[in-house]
Computed example of a mutant assay.
Amino acid sequence: MPNVLLQYQTEIWQSIGETFIMVGVSILAAVLLGLPLGTWLYLSRKGQLLENRAVFSVLNLIVNIVRSFPFLLLVVFLIPFTRLIIGTAIGTAAATVPLAIIAIAHYSRLVEQSLLDVPRGVVEAAVSMGASIKDVIFKFLYVEARSGLVLGLTTSIISFISYSTIMGVVGGGGIGDFAIRYGYQQFKTELMMYMILIMLVFVQMIQFTGTTVARLIDKR
Rank of each mutant, 00 (worst) to 15 (best):
I102L: 06
L216E: 00
G38M: 02
V58N: 06
L72P: 02
M193I: 13
P2F: 11
L49F: 15
V150F: 12
Y42E: 04
I180Y: 15
T39I: 12
G121V: 05
G47F: 08
R45C: 13
G87Q: 00
L73Q: 02
V203R: 10
R181G: 00
K46H: 14
I101K: 02
L84I: 01
T209A: 15
L50R: 13
A54C: 06
M167C: 08
L216I: 10
A125W: 09
V111D: 03
Q207M: 07
V170C: 05
S68Q: 01
M129F: 07
M199Y: 12
P70W: 06
V170Y: 02
M205L: 15
E112W: 01
I90P: 08
A95D: 03
I16F: 14
Q113M: 09
I217K: 11
I137M: 04
F187L: 11
G176E: 07
A179T: 12
T82K: 06
T155D: 09
V127H: 06
Y8L: 13
M1E: 12
I101S: 01
Q204E: 14
I101N: 02
G183N: 00
V31E: 03
G17Q: 11
I157L: 13
L151T: 12
R67L: 06
F56P: 09
M205Q: 12
I196Y: 12
M192V: 05
V58D: 10
V75R: 01
I102K: 01
I196G: 13
L99W: 06
T212R: 14
A100T: 03
M205R: 10
A94S: 05
W40D: 11
V31Y: 01
I65M: 03
Q113R: 08
E51L: 10
V58P: 09
L99V: 09
M192Y: 06
Y142V: 03
K139D: 15
G173Y: 04
V58S: 10
K46W: 13
S57M: 13
T10Q: 14
Q14C: 02
S26A: 04
Y8N: 15
G24T: 02
T96W: 00
G38I: 05
F202I: 15
A214H: 08
V123S: 13
V203W: 11
A100L: 02
L61S: 07
G24N: 04
V118F: 03
W40M: 15
A94F: 03
V31N: 03
R215G: 00
I175Y: 10
V63Q: 02
V201I: 15
G91L: 01
S156D: 04
I206Y: 10
E51S: 14
L191C: 07
F140P: 05
L78W: 04
N60G: 07
I133P: 01
L191S: 04
G183S: 03
P98Q: 02
V4F: 12
V203L: 13
I27Q: 03
L37T: 05
I85M: 01
L110N: 04
Y8W: 15
I157W: 08
V25I: 13
A125T: 14
P80A: 02
G171P: 11
D177Q: 15
L5W: 08
L37R: 06
L191P: 04
F178S: 09
